[in-house]
């Protein structure tokens, strides 16, 4: 399953909830959620912990737009829009967390 998060984990609980219930599958961070996967962010540790169970992706254009193109957390894969589409196509189902 693909989980899509688009809110900063510092202002919204979607990522926390997703990490709590997701046992496997892919997590894609887009829009404001990309900050979760940047070095020095307070959420980095829990994201790294989740990477033992899930594969974490970040949408590179959103990261670039926010000036974090060079601060991607190790172990997180970056995708472009085409990669986003591939992720939605390769997973059986997906959930866009609100």
């Amino acid at each position: 399953m693909l989980h899509i998060i688009n809110k900063s984990p510092l202002t919204n609980g979607a990522l926390d909830s997703c990490l709590r219930v997701a046992q496997s599958g892919d997590i894609l961070l887009i829009e404001d959620a990309v900050v979760a996967a940047t070095t020095g962010n307070v959420c980095a540790a829990k994201l790294q912990e989740a990477m033992g169970r899930c594969k974490v992706y970040v949408l590179q254009p959103d990261l670039d737009a926010r000036g974090f193109g060079d601060r991607l957390l190790e172990g997180v894969s970056s995708v472009d829009y085409g990669g986003f589409v591939e992720l939605t196509a390769s997973n059986k189902n997906c959930q866009s967390w609100l």
Partner: peptide
């Protein structure tokens, strides 16, 4: 439990968030 919830989500064809 959180794990059971995660498994149940995995089994769905369509998941809608509100």
């Amino acid at each position: 439990s959180r794990a059971e919830m995660g498994e149940l989500m995995d089994q769905q064809d369509v998941v809608l968030s509100f």
